[in-house]
Structure formats: C-alpha cells, structure tokens
Simulated assay, not measured.
Amino acid sequence: MADIADFANDLVQERLDQALAARSALKPAIAAHSFMFCEGCETPIPLARRVAISGCTQCVSCQTIDEARKARHA
C-alpha cells in the first residue's frame, strides 16, 4: 500500500525526468564549439573541418583511429 512518502518520491522523480527531458531538448539548439587543436595529437584542425563538423575535437587522422578503435570494441 502506497503512503504519502511514496507519492512524494514519485512526484520528485517525475519532475526530475521532465527537467532532464527539457534540458536534453535544448542541446541540439546550442551550437557546439569546435576545438582549434586536436585533443589527440594537438595539431591544428583545419577551418573547413571545424565549420563543416560543429563541435569537432579531433583531426581527421585521430578521428579515423578513434572510430576504428570503437568499431573493434563494439
């Protein structure tokens, strides 16, 4: 049998879920900032790549290696 504490917990969880959903919905609207230098090898990332791929953090070489590594572990 549910008591007042159970109802309160359910209400809090529902509000948290709504807040997280609202926050997640805003993420695509915010433009991600691209790095000037690769986080893997610290070489400059070309402007064309930074413009084409919003939020990029790696150069093409490091990104390729990273994707190959993730594909092996998938």
Rank of each mutant, 00 (worst) to 15 (best):
M1F: 07
M1A: 13
A5R: 14
D6P: 01
D6L: 07
N9A: 09
V12T: 09
E14D: 11
R15M: 08
D17S: 14
A19N: 08
A21K: 09
S24K: 12
L26N: 08
L26I: 02
L26R: 09
K27T: 15
K27S: 13
P28F: 00
P28V: 00
A29P: 00
A29N: 04
A31N: 01
A31I: 01
A32C: 05
A32Q: 13
M36C: 04
C38F: 06
E39L: 15
C41Q: 02
E42C: 13
T43L: 14
P44D: 06
I45N: 03
I45C: 02
L47C: 00
A48K: 09
A48R: 13
R49V: 09
V51F: 03
A52K: 12
S54P: 08
C56Y: 00
C56Q: 02
C56G: 02
T57P: 00
T57I: 15
C59R: 03
C59Y: 01
V60H: 10
V60G: 01
Q63I: 03
T64K: 13
I65Y: 08
I65S: 08
D66Y: 11
D66W: 08
R69I: 12
R69M: 12
R69G: 03
K70F: 03
K70L: 13
R72N: 02
H73R: 15
H73S: 12
A74G: 15
A74C: 05
A74S: 11
